[in-house]
Each structure stands twice: as structure tokens, then as C-alpha cells.
């Protein structure tokens, strides 16, 4: 191993120090580890070594070299492509980098982030021990589709997967994390339109489509518009609710105190009246029913009737012959 490591190191140093493209012959003469190999053995070793340097993420560049016998392929690594540019982090910024260490816990990106942090350390940036232990974020990536979608997004490669029983070819423009779930927005080539996919609903392992040029995305503003489709819909109406003082916090905090209605003097038990904006009838009915006697819908009457229907159904389910028994 040590001899192979030496040869690779010497190759890196030789290519980095080069001020022009080096031909294979230049490299064979210069790098000690290639001495004494037959032509065929050298070619094999050099091909493998090039692959290993690329796998290490080194920017190995090919170009035309001016050799003494004419033009031929040559190789070099440009320092400005190779080197981590100066980052000049303040001590406070360096401390925060340390916090990033554990964010991808257990996910595939854990090791990529770890390598990034090791490189910053290697650049001499003092990453202080995290004093801010009070904040410990982690990102969930339990969707099996996350890894392939991340790679497709990062490399702008179209990706193929099955969703709702249909095969799609998709360009992931942006990944979105909402409520602990990942989504991807982009062009669904199969449907010919911009779509939002929920990663947990992808039914197979997405595969990058090989041999495609990187796809183009749209402007940040247009992307933001697509991301907004995940936001809660805008309220369209207001309901008048009677809420017990500490009850139904979600409804109460969304609403504002309202004037007492004529029915109020018969409510008793310290109900307070709120006007609560809502977007969808079904959602308001579900929320009000879930709160039980903590919330009474006063208006509109249609919603009140829907809540009472639901409560009656649940009340009846406990009856011995009730339809909820499912014996």
C-alpha cells in the first residue's frame, strides 16, 4: 500500500507543480513509481491512478501538450481549481461550522459534510468545540428516494421514478423540507408540466437518466412561487366560535375576540367568542369537532350543522349496536 500511496502522492504533486500539460512520457519519466514498468504495465497503472485521483475529487485536466515530436494529450491539475479558496472565517463563524457536524446524523450526507469539515480544519481554520450545545438540529432523510433526488438535483440530471403507479422522468429544480417531509419541485417531463412530488410517495428507487445534458432551471422568483404551493391556503371566510378560555389553542390564537352574539347568554361556563378565519370548510369542521365541548360553532349555520353531525356519529359509535363497533 505504501508504495502505491507514494506513487499517487508523487503524481498529484507532479501534476500540481506542472506549469504546462505533461505528456504521458513526461509523467512516466518524472514520477518515481512508474520507473521500471513495461509499457503495458505503465499504461494500466496510469489509467487506474487517474481514476483514483478523480474519485478523490481532484480536478485532473486534459489538454494538448506541446511535445518535442508534435502535439499530444497531456495532463495537469491547476492550483486554482484544486485549492480550497481562502475563507477567512471569524471565530464566531468557525464555531457554527462545528455545529453542522451532527446535522445529517445517519444520513448519506453525513460523510460528505464530515469531509467538508475536515477540509476546513486542514485549511487551518480553528473550529472551536461547540459552546452552543443548546441547539442540536438534525435533518430527517428517512425517505429512500432522498439520496438519488439529492444527487439528481446537485448534478442537474433528470431522474426516473414511479409515482401513483406511473413512470415519470423528472427534473428536480429544488428540494423542500416541510413538516419533516421532503418534497421536490421541478419539471415532470412525462406530464410536460411543473409538479411537486412528495418523496415518501415515490414507489421505487429513483434512477438518474444517463447521458443527458444538465437540465436548466427557472428563476429563483418562479421557483419560490412553486414552493408556496405547499403553504397553507389563504383564509376565505370567518367563523364565529365560542371557545373555553384555555381550550382549542390553535383556533383561539388564529382568531380575534368578537362581539357577543344573542345566543351567548345561554352558553355559560365562561365561553369566549372569537372570529376565526378559515380556508376550507372541512378543515374547520374537523378542528371544531376535535375540540369537543371546548369549541361551539355559532356561525355559519352550515358549519355548525356539519360539526353536530360529526359529533352525533362519534356519540352513536359507542352504542352496543353502533356501526363503529366493527365486530
Amino acid at each position: 500500500m505504501a508504495r502505491k500511496s507514494e506513487r499517487l502522492m508523487n503524481l498529484v504533486i507532479c501534476l500540481l507543480a506542472a506549469t504546462r500539460y505533461l505528456t504521458r512520457d513526461d509523467i512516466r519519466r518524472s514520477v518515481e513509481g512508474y520507473a521500471g514498468l513495461t509499457d503495458q504495465a505503465f499504461e494500466r497503472a496510469f489509467e487506474r491512478d487517474k481514476e483514483e485521483l478523480r474519485a478523490l475529487g481532484l480536478p485532473l485536466e486534459m489538454g494538448r501538450a506541446d511535445a518535442w515530436d508534435g502535439e499530444t494529450d497531456g495532463y495537469r491539475i491547476r492550483r486554482q481549481d484544486y485549492e480550497l479558496p481562502p475563507l477567512d472565517l471569524t471565530p464566531a463563524e468557525a464555531t457554527l461550522v462545528g455545529l453542522a457536524t451532527r446535522v445529517w446524523q445517519g444520513a448519506a450526507l453525513d460523510s460528505a459534510t464530515g469531509r467538508a469539515i475536515a477540509k476546513l480544519k486542514a485549511a487551518g481554520i480553528p473550529l472551536a468545540a461547540d459552546r452552543l450545545v443548546a441547539v442540536a438540529p438534525t435533518l430527517p432523510t428517512r425517505e429512500p428516494a432522498f439520496g438519488p433526488l439529492w444527487e439528481a438535483w446537485l448534478t442537474r440530471a433528470p431522474v426516473r421514478f414511479s409515482y401513483h403507479g406511473k413512470e415519470r422522468v423528472f427534473e428536480p429544480w429544488r428540494l423542500i423540507l416541510r413538516h419533516g417531509r421532503w418534497y421536490a419541485v421541478g419539471r415532470d417531463r412525462t406530464a410536460g408540466e411543473v409538479r411537486l412530488f412528495k418523496l415518501s410517495r415515490i414507489e421505487d428507487t429513483p434512477a438518474l437518466v444517463p447521458g443527458e445534458p444538465p437540465f436548466a432551471t427557472v428563476s429563483a422568483a418562479e421557483l419560490a412561487g412553486h414552493v408556496r404551493r405547499l403553504d397553507a391556503p389563504e383564509p376565505v371566510a370567518e367563523a364565529l366560535l365560542a371557545i373555553k378560555p384555555d381550550g382549542a389553542p390553535a383556533l383561539r390564537r388564529r382568531g380575534r375576540r368578537a362581539e357577543a352574539d344573542t345566543a351567548l347568554d345561554r352558553l355559560g361556563d365562561g365561553y369566549e367568542v372569537y372570529s376565526v378565519p378559515y380556508a376550507r370548510d372541512d378543515d374547520l369542521v374537523a378542528e371544531a369537532a376535535a375540540a369537543g365541548s371546548d369549541v361551539l360553532v355559532l356561525e355559519p349555520p352550515g358549519l355548525r350543522a356539519a360539526v353536530i353531525d360529526r359529533l352525533r356519529w362519534v356519540a352513536a359509535a359507542a352504542a352496543p349496536a353502533g356501526k363503529g363497533g366493527l365486530a
Binding site: 478523490l56 475529487g57 484544486y82 485549492e83 480550497l84 460528505a112 477540509k119
Partner: peptide, 8 residues
């Protein structure tokens, strides 16, 4: 050190 890969 080597610059960061896109993934990193």
C-alpha cells in the same frame, strides 16, 4: 486542502 466537492 482540496476544494470542496459540490456534495461536500
Amino acid at each position: 486542502p482540496v476544494t470542496l466537492t459540490p456534495d461536500e
